[in-house]
Amino acid sequence: MANYHGRKSLDLGLLEIETKTNALTLKVLEAFEETFNSFYTKDLEKSKEIIKNDIFINKFSIEIENKSIEVIRRETPLASDMRKLTSYMFVSQELERIGDYLAGICKINLKIGKDPFITKFEKIPKMEAIAKNMLKDSIKLFSNFPDQKKALKAAKDIFSQDDEIDHLNSQVQNDLIKRMARSSKLVEQGTYIIWVAHNLERISDRANNIAERTIYVITGDSGAIFPYELEE
């Protein structure tokens, strides 16, 4: 008769990686908050600090990758264990890239410097809120691994927010390009602000990827990574 027994060493390895991933998520969310606070308030010193601290996010991501490789090598996992471990590596890289986009926004802040903003920022704060929400939701989904039905519903909600952010990004670009065409004085800062919107749009894509990856972990269907493409 088959007896249930845990795999202590593998389970501890998974727990350690999960804990590190949660810690990395907190660091990224903190950087997210501080990036936009420093941007709107023109706190250039804070922006410099965030750029400097991005290295810790990078190092954390590499630590998760190395730990995952170590556990795979040691435990030769299969099925859902293998899907989780490869996905931790994937998600840590996505978080690391999000850190890069935030550092990029801080660099833009330094370039704009103390010059007054050419815009009242209506759409970018909306994009910021959506991107942050998507990131939180996708990480929550990835951390909890709910049942398939709940996960697909949560993923659907995340994907729908991505559509919204794409739409806002297009609006920011169109508005600023129109204004820049009318006044060459706006071109430099206008281009920078388009980049801020672009980075937010890319952050939302990364959050989307995390949600898609969670669907893969849960269903085991690699096609489900791109569920909407599959249906076409």
Partner: peptide, 8 residues
């Protein structure tokens, strides 16, 4: 995207 995942 949301429509398509419903089918899934």
């Amino acid at each position: 995207k949301s429509k398509k995942i419903d089918k899934k």
